[in-house]
Design a protein around this nucleic acid. Sequence first.
DNA 1: ATAGGTGCAAACAGTTTGCATGTAT
DNA 2: ATACATGCAAACTGTTTGCACCTAT
Lengths: 138, 138
Amino acid sequence: MARRTAQRAAIRKVLEEAGRPLSPAEILQASQLFVPGLGLTTVYRTVNALVDEGWLVAVELPGEAARYELAGKAHHHHFHCRCCGAVFNVSGCTDGLEDLLPKGFEMEDHAIVLYGACEACCSKLSGSPTPVESSANA
Amino acid sequence: MARRTAQRAAIRKVLEEAGRPLSPAEILQASQLFVPGLGLTTVYRTVNALVDEGWLVAVELPGEAARYELAGKAHHHHFHCRCCGAVFNVSGCTDGLEDLLPKGFEMEDHAIVLYGACEACCSKLSGSPTPVESSANA
DNA sequence: ATAGGTGCAAACAGTTTGCATGTAT
DNA sequence: ATACATGCAAACTGTTTGCACCTAT
C-alpha cells in the first residue's frame, strides 16, 4: 500500500462510511460511484492488503462470504437479519462461555452470531423487505 | 431418497459413526472405504437430500465450508480447534444473549463458535499436530 | 524513470446441474 | 420395465493470479 490512488481512496471511504461490514461486491458497487472503472480484482487486492495492514478485519459469518469492517472496534459480535440480509454489529458479550468448554480444551477466542429480524424489518414485517445489501437496485 | 443404494448406506454410516460434523470431502473419503467408486457429486446430492429430509443438519462455521452432522441432537454449539482443524460439539449454552440485542431487533436464533486448542492438541502442543481432518493421509 | 497499482482474462476451489448409463424395485 | 440414482464433465460463484499497461512518486 505504498501509493495513494483514486481506487484505494474510494474503497477506504466506502468502508469508513458504511458503519457495517461490507462484502467485496458491496464495496465494488459503492466504490464505483467514485471510480466508475473500478474492478473487482482491485477490491479484493486492496481489501486483502488492508486486512494485512490491520486497517480492516474480516467478518466471517457462517455460510456467508466474508465481509469487511474497520479494525479497532471494541469487542463486539454480529446480528444477521434474515429478512433483509444486512449484518449489524452488536456491542457487548456474554459470560459463561468458559463453562461450555470441554475438559482439557483451551479457548483462545469466540464468535457469537445472532439471527433474526432487524429493527427496520420488524416494524414492517408485512410489507416488502428493504434489501439494504444484496442486489440492491441503485 | 426412494431407493436404498450402497452409496447412500455408506454415507449414512459414515455420518452416524463420525461423532462430529464432517465436510463433504471428509464424507467422500470415508465413504469410499465402503464404495470405492463413489463420486463427490453423489455425496453432495445425498447430503442435500438428507438435509431436506431432516436427517442431517448443516454446520456452517465462519469462513469454513459447511459440515454436516446428524439432526436431532440437543441444542449445542461448536468448538473449532485451530491446531488440528477438527470441529467438536459442545453442549450447553449461555444466558444473556438477549441482552446483546439492539432495541427493536428480534432474535430467532443464535450461533456460538469457540476457537482454541482441543484436548489432544493441548497435551502435545510442542509435538506435531495430528491432522484428524484436513488432508489426513489415510 | 521506475516500482507499484490496475484491469482484463485465465486459473482455482467448492458446489451444482445436464445427461447418458446403471440399478433397485 | 422403468423410474430413480450415479458418475462424469461442464457450468457457476466467489476468490486469486498472470501479465501487459498505466501512473503516483
